[in-house]
């Protein structure tokens, strides 16, 4: 499952010793500290952390919305602090936000998806193709001429993803894009994200506080208090219960149950997915 075959050795985004704090007058609030990470082309990276742990700050640093106080972020070799390259960076690192309603600018879906390419000055025929392709990927083609107002949260968020895809980014960052959705909407978005990564080879950075969304990741970074406290493949990260607890995160249900069973003396290995748990429970005598 966590075969890193898709992930290459080429870094799309590099953060090198990045620190950033918010300042307003006297008041300084810590954003993130000493972040080192590389996002590899084609990988599915998950950044986990509770509220206020600095995930959004990190995301904004990765697409150039914020510029590091110290350290350096490069996107495909371009330093994000280069003022002349702002839009280049932004179009390469697409960002999907939390509230789907607040990301749409037009009252007709196809016009909303076309907004990004229009801003980039893409020729009309090309925009048409991109809109078609983007809506196709997120499975919303039939709503093309419709209004976003009547859609479900999951559908709106899929449109928001399509709107970013139409700019042909190299990386898509989703900043808690499932947090406001119901379980069905969350599932829709997770399926879309996995399809994007697995079938289209898109590099995806998913930011979340739900651990079960991290199960399918190639790599996980766990954040707490503005720092990366652990990282690695899901199995390694999940197994380190102490540091997860310190970061205020809760293991997925399957893991918790497998641990409890093992504690009670059953021969159940540590599981991270429901299927794994079901398998090992079935194998019990």
């Amino acid at each position: 499952m966590n075969d890193n075959a898709r992930a290459t050795q080429e870094a799309v985004i590099t953060a090198d010793g990045v620190s950033f704090s918010y300042r307003s007058g006297e008041y300084v609030s810590r954003g993130v500290r000493e972040i080192n990470l590389e996002v590899m082309r084609g990988e599915f990276l998950v950044i986990l952390g509770r509220n206020g742990s600095g995930k959004s700050t990190l995301a904004k640093l990765l697409n150039g919305f914020l510029v590091p106080d110290t350290g350096k972020v490069t996107v495909l070799g371009t330093d994000t602090s280069d003022d002349d390259k702002v839009y280049e960076v932004r179009s390469k690192v697409g960002m999907v936000f939390q509230n789907p309603d607040n990301q749409m600018v037009a009252s007709v879906i196809e016009n909303d998806v076309a907004f990004g390419p229009e801003n980039l000055g893409i020729p009309r025929e090309e925009i048409e193709k991109r809109v078609t392709a983007a809506l196709e990927i997120v499975g919303m083609s039939e709503y093309r001429k419709g209004s976003p107002n009547k859609l479900s949260g999951g559908q709106k968020q899929r449109i928001a993803i399509a709107a970013i895809l139409a700019m042909l980014p190299e990386v898509v960052i989703l900043d808690e894009s499932t947090a406001m959705l119901d379980p069905k909407g969350r599932r829709e978005i997770m399926e879309t994200v996995l399809k994007l990564n697995r079938e289209k080879g898109m590099t995806v950075v998913l930011i979340t506080h739900y651990m079960d969304e991290a199960i399918e990741a190639d790599r996980i970074f766990v954040m707490n208090d503005g720092e990366i406290v652990s990282s690695g493949a899901p199995r390694e990260v999940f197994a380190d219960a102490e540091s997860l607890k310190a970061a205020g995160l809760e293991l997925p249900a399957a893991s918790r149950i497998s641990l409890k069973l093992a504690e009670a003396g059953y021969d159940v290995p540590f599981a991270i997915t429901d299927e794994e748990l079901a398998d090992s429970v079935c194998r019990l005598k």
Binding site: P117, G121, R124, I127
Partner: peptide, 17 residues
């Protein structure tokens, strides 16, 4: 922020869908 993410004002030669 969403407008910025969609490169609003990136170029004066904006096109029309």
């Amino acid at each position: 922020m969403a407008l910025d993410a969609r490169c609003y004002n990136a170029t004066p030669n904006r096109t029309r869908y």
